[in-house]
C-alpha cells in the first residue's frame, strides 16, 4: 500500500467532443510535497485538476490515487482525503461564512447527525488560521471577492485532508493574503506532511513555494521536475514564448523570474 505513489497518472487523454484538451499525460506525485502546475491560459490545467479529483473521467489512460483508480472511490471517502479550492464559487442563496466553512465537514458528518464538537472546533480553527473569524456571521453574497476566496480556503482547511488542490486560488487576492494563504499551505506540507497541488499563474510565487513544477502547454507536459531544475529561461520561453531572467534573489531567498517589460 505504501509503495504506491500518492498519484499515478498513466497516459491520460481527455477532450470535450472532438477537441482534445489533454494528450497522453503520464507522471507521478508523491506525498508531502508542494506541487505547482504552470502553463498558459487554456492549456488544460483546470481539466487536469478535475481528473485528479475525479470530477471527470479520462477518455483513455488512468488516474490512480493511493493505488486505486480515482473513480472507484466513493465521493465521501475521496472528500475525506482530497479538498479543492476552486477559482470561484456560486452562492445563489446567502449562507453565512461559518455555514460555508462547516460544509467542509460534510464528508465526516453522517446523514441526519449534527456536527460534533470536533467538527465545530475544526471550523473555528480553520477560520482563525485564515483570519476570517470576525466574518463568521456575515453572508457570503455580501462579501468581497477576496473575503469569499479566503472563506473557501478555510472550508478546505476544515475538510482536513491529506491533499489540498488549489485552482488559481489566490488569483483574486491581494499580495498580503496571497502570501498568507501560501504560507499556511506551505506549513501544512512542511509540518504535517500534507500534499498541495496548486495551479499558479504567478511564476515568482510558483518558484518561491513549490518543490516541483509541472509546466504544461497545449494539453501536454512541457517540463516536469524540481523547481530549481525546471524553472529556467529556456522552459519559460518554450511554454510562454517570452524571454526572462531567472536568478537566485537574496532578499526573498528563492529563485525569482524577471521579465523585460517594455523597450
Amino acid at each position: 500500500m505504501n509503495n504506491h505513489p500518492l498519484y499515478d497518472i498513466a497516459d491520460i487523454s481527455f477532450g470535450y467532443d472532438a477537441t482534445p484538451v489533454l494528450q497522453d499525460l503520464s507522471f507521478t506525485l508523491e506525498s508531502g510535497k508542494f506541487y505547482g502546475i504552470v502553463g498558459p491560459n487554456g492549456c488544460g490545467k483546470t481539466t487536469l485538476l478535475d481528473l485528479l479529483i475525479g470530477n471527470r473521467i479520462p477518455l483513455s489512460g488512468s488516474v490512480s490515487f493511493k493505488g486505486k483508480i480515482v473513480s472507484s472511490y466513493h465521493r465521501r471517502t475521496l472528500a475525506q482525503q482530497i479538498s479543492l479550492v476552486p477559482q470561484e464559487f456560486d452562492t445563489g442563496f446567502g449562507y453565512t461564512v461559518e455555514e460555508i466553512v462547516l460544509m467542509g465537514r460534510h464528508p465526516y458528518i453522517s446523514r441526519f447527525a449534527s456536527p460534533s464538537a470536533e467538527d465545530w472546533q475544526r471550523v473555528d480553527q480553520a477560520m482563525k488560521t485564515i483570519g476570517i473569524d470576525d466574518l463568521k456571521n456575515r453572508y457570503t453574497n455580501e462579501l468581497s471577492g477576496g473575503q469569499k476566496q479566503r472563506t473557501v480556503v478555510a472550508r478546505a482547511l476544515a475538510q482536513n485532508t491529506d491533499v489540498l488542490i488549489f485552482d488559481e486560488a489566490t488569483s483574486s487576492l491581494d499580495v498580503k493574503y496571497s502570501l498568507e494563504i501560501f504560507n499556511v499551505a506551505r506549513r501544512l506540507v512542511l509540518d504535517k506532511g500534507r500534499t498541495v497541488i496548486a495551479v499558479i499563474h504567478n511564476l515568482n510565487l510558483a518558484a518561491a513555494y513549490c518543490d516541483k513544477l509541472l509546466f504544461m502547454k497545449d494539453g501536454k507536459i512541457a517540463c516536469y521536475g524540481p523547481t530549481a531544475e525546471v524553472m529556467t529561461p529556456e522552459t519559460i520561453a518554450g511554454v510562454f514564448d517570452i524571454s526572462s531572467k531567472v536568478s537566485h534573489d537574496p532578499y526573498s531567498r528563492t529563485l525569482q523570474v524577471n521579465f523585460r517589460y517594455w523597450d
Binding site: D50, I53, G54, N55, R75, R76, T77, L78, A79, Q80, I82, S83, L84, P86, F89, D90, T91, G92, F93, Y95, I100, M103, G104, H106, P107, I109, R111, V152, Q159, I165
Partner: peptide
C-alpha cells in the same frame, strides 16, 4: 429531507459539491 444537506452544498456548484463528497 434525506438529501437536504447535499442540496445545500450543491448550491456551491457541482465542482465544489463533488469535492465535498456529494454525489
Amino acid at each position: 429531507l434525506y438529501y437536504g444537506r447535499d442540496l445545500n452544498i450543491m448550491s456551491l456548484g457541482s465542482r465544489s459539491s463533488d469535492a465535498l463528497g456529494v454525489e
